[in-house]
């Protein structure tokens, strides 16, 4: 076990625990946007920053990636930390003025939009948290979407912004998206996502449309379970 201090509170946690988890386990709240339990972390959004003091040196680190260390002193709400968090939220408010998630989070932390930043019109609600790209790669395993360009032009898209041949329409990306940026439209027989329309499969037993055919084919191929056995929805299985 490693012993350290967060916001004046003596805490111990197993080696390898991240500061974020150690704090949350002890009732200390740290806001996050890009850390999702299902996928690996990148430290991209920078909302979860805290100050870590080791001896004389105090530096700002992302709590989601910073492993606990013996004797370290963490502050999660001092002025330096809040200054970063406020800036991050102001910047995201300007990038995604339509996002309720960002607006609510900003309101919670008392952050108002910065009038000096002209609101973006072309970024929709995407904050580039990378959860969608990671879930598609790490959990689904198809890497249908990815990043393009860099800097302010960086975006999540299918290659060449065209229909992805490998997308299975599973919707994991839309599900994990914290701001509701990824649009998925599911009607009875079809599902539309990333510009492509997928045919839904009706359950062999109850007749309810429950999953895209491409997704079932993909699961069958990956697991070796015959497609027929997958043609029944979870309720009827």
């Amino acid at each position: 076990m490693v012993n350290f201090i967060i916001d004046g509170k003596k805490i111990s946690a197993a080696k390898g625990t991240m500061v974020l988890e150690a704090a949350r386990a002890n009732g200390i709240d740290i806001p996050t946007l890009c850390a999702h339990e299902a996928v690996s972390r990148s430290g991209a959004c920078r909302l979860c920053v805290v100050e870590a003091k080791k001896g004389k040196r105090a530096k700002i680190v992302t709590s989601c990636l910073y492993p606990v260390e013996e004797g370290i002193i963490i502050e999660t709400k001092n002025e330096r930390v809040l200054n970063v968090r406020r800036l991050v939220l102001q910047l995201l408010l300007a990038r995604c003025p339509e996002s309720d998630v960002i607006r609510d989070l900003a309101a919670q932390l008392g952050v108002a939009p910065q009038p000096r930043f002209a609101a973006d019109k072309d970024k929709s609600k995407c904050i580039l948290c990378r959860s969608c790209v990671r879930v598609c790669e790490e959990i689904v395993g198809v890497s249908a979407i990815g990043f393009s360009c860099r800097g302010a032009d960086k975006a999540v898209s299918t290659p060449f912004n065209e229909d992805s041949a490998v997308c299975i329409g599973c919707g994991a990306c839309a599900f994990i998206c914290p701001t509701g940026h990824i649009e998925m439209e599911t009607t009875e027989e079809t599902r539309k996502i990333w510009g492509r329309t997928f045919k839904m499969k009706a359950c062999d037993v109850c007749g309810r449309y429950f999953a895209p055919e491409d997704q079932l084919k993909y699961i069958s191929k990956k697991t070796g379970v015959p497609l027929k056995e997958l043609a029944v929805c979870t309720n009827c299985r």
């Binding site: 920078r46 991050v88 910047l91 990038r95 904050i127 580039l128 360009c149 960086k154």
Partner: peptide, 9 residues
């Protein structure tokens, strides 16, 4: 590179 918010935005 566009990865983190403070630098990109």
């Amino acid at each position: 590179c566009g990865k983190c918010t403070p630098c990109r935005e």
